[in-house]
Simulated assay, not measured.
Amino acid sequence: MQRTIRFILMLIPAFIVTYGFASIFHTQSVLARLARLDVTIPLTERLATIMFDLAGLLPTYGLAILIMLTLALGSAGILGRHLPHRGALYSLMCAVAGATGMLVMLLAMHPLMDVTLIAGARGVGGKLLQCSAGFLGGLTFAISHQLLPRRFKSKR
C-alpha cells in the first residue's frame, strides 16, 4: 500500500510537468504553422490559446498521458529496484521511459484512430517536442523519488 501511495505522489508532479509541456508545445507548434502563413498572433492571443488548450486537451490527451506515464514510469520503477545505486542511472532511465512512452503513445494513436489527434505532433519536430515533454516528466518522477521519504509513518 505504501508503495502505491508513494508511486501516486511521484506520478502527480510527473503528470503535471509532462502534460503542461506537451500541451504548451502542441499549442506553440500549431501557432508557429499559422505564423508561417503570415497570420499575426499577438502575445495575448498566444497566452489565451495556451490556457484554452491546457483546459481543453485535459480530458482526452491528459488522460492518455496519465495512462502512458503510469505504464512507462511504473515499469521503470520496477526495473529500477534492481539497480545497485538509484542515482543518475535511475533518473536517466525514468526520463527515457517518459520520452519513449510519449513516442509509443503518439505512434499508436494514428493507426487506432486513423488521425493524428495532436496537431502539434504531426511532424518530426512536433514529435520530438512531445517526447521531450515526456523526458521532463520522467525526470520529475525520478527527482520526486529522491525527495519523498522512503516510508510513510502512520499516525496510529
Rank of each mutant, 00 (worst) to 15 (best):
R81M: 11
L136P: 08
I16N: 07
H110D: 02
I78W: 06
V124N: 02
R46F: 04
T40I: 14
M51P: 06
I12A: 08
V124Q: 06
A95R: 01
S91M: 14
Y19K: 05
R81D: 00
P111Y: 02
A76D: 07
G77Q: 09
Y61D: 09
R86Q: 13
A108Q: 14
G120N: 13
Y90S: 09
L43Q: 15
A133N: 13
C94N: 11
L57G: 03
S29V: 06
R122Y: 00
S132N: 04
C131L: 07
A133G: 13
K155H: 10
T116K: 02
M102Y: 02
M105C: 10
F52I: 08
L148C: 11
R33D: 11
G134E: 12
I65A: 12
T140N: 03
A35G: 01
F52K: 15
V17A: 09
A32M: 12
I143M: 02
M10Q: 10
L47H: 07
A32C: 09
V30F: 04
Q28F: 14
A64H: 04
R151N: 13
H82W: 13
S144Q: 03
A32D: 06
V96Y: 00
A48F: 10
V17D: 12
H85L: 09
R156K: 14
Y19T: 04
R151Y: 10
A119M: 08
R122E: 05
A119N: 12
T49D: 13
L128Q: 05
A88L: 10
H26V: 06
G120K: 13
L129C: 11
L128E: 02
A22Y: 12
A55P: 02
M105S: 10
G56F: 07
T60N: 07
K127F: 00
I5L: 14
S23M: 00
A95M: 03
H26E: 08
T18Q: 07
K153M: 09
A64R: 09
V96F: 11
A142C: 02
L47R: 15
A14D: 04
S23L: 02
A64G: 13
M93L: 07
L83S: 07
I65F: 04
M109K: 15
T27E: 06
V104K: 10
I78Y: 09
G74T: 11
A97F: 00
L103D: 08
L147R: 14
A48L: 10
R3M: 04
C94Q: 13
R36Y: 06
Q2H: 05
R33K: 13
L47P: 00
P149A: 05
G126N: 09
H85D: 03
L66S: 11
L63P: 00
L83E: 13
M102L: 09
A64Y: 10
G126I: 04
Y61C: 01
G56L: 10
T70C: 06
K127I: 05
M102G: 05
T140E: 00
Q2V: 06
L89W: 04
R36S: 12
S23Q: 02
I65S: 03
R36M: 15
T100A: 15
G123M: 00
A14K: 03
L9Q: 07
P59E: 05
Q28V: 07
K155L: 08
F135L: 04
F21P: 02
L147A: 09
Y90V: 06
Q146T: 06
P42E: 14
L57F: 14
L107C: 06
